[in-house]
Amino acid sequence: MKRALTYLAFAILGIGIGAYSALTMAGLLPGDRRTQGPIEINNWYGDFAMGSEDASPYFRARIARHGLLALANTEAVYFTRTVDDSGQPFTEDCMYQLSGGAMPARWWSVTLYNAQNFLPDNTDSALSFDASRADMQSDNGSGWSAVISPAKPADDTGWISSKASEAFDLTLRLYVPNDGVLEDPEGMIDAPSVKRLQCSGDAS
């Protein structure tokens, strides 16, 4: 009887360790976030195996959880970042300036998501900034900027609302990437910067 209980205890321990390690490594725990990836450009992380049969089992599971129905890289590439230029995690309590230039793709966008991988629950109708809005700021979107903040800024020609997002992240989509992007993403993509402007509680 004692021997059987020993086996049972070790069996439960093994299943627990196996389950926890799998959920952790595949990004399936409730608190886990983001798609991650081996390509890093200015704090934006991506993996071109997204949506592909070439994806590792771990990455495939992570994408199923955090980016289901993502397109394969010939149609779109995705990058996610969770920190500002100073390396601090994004938070609804701060205001940021997102800025960049022309992107090597037919169309691009930057969208804000909450920790549950969904659009934040607000009614500001300012959930993203995309190439069409950049084109309105400058010819061919060659130089653009947007404010990320929980309240509408005075100049709202470029605004992404972080209201009700708490700790958020940003996803950069490049649709129909230009030739060369898949081979040399670091050389081809001038990924947007995200500068922290101020936070609630900062001395004014």
Binding site: F10, G14, I15, G18, A19, A22, A26, A61, A64
Partner: peptide, 22 residues
Amino acid sequence: GPIACSIILALATHAGIVYFAP
């Protein structure tokens, strides 16, 4: 014996979750 059983179950559980999750 129990340790070997635990390791085998850990590996099987880990592989099963990763494989079947998507």
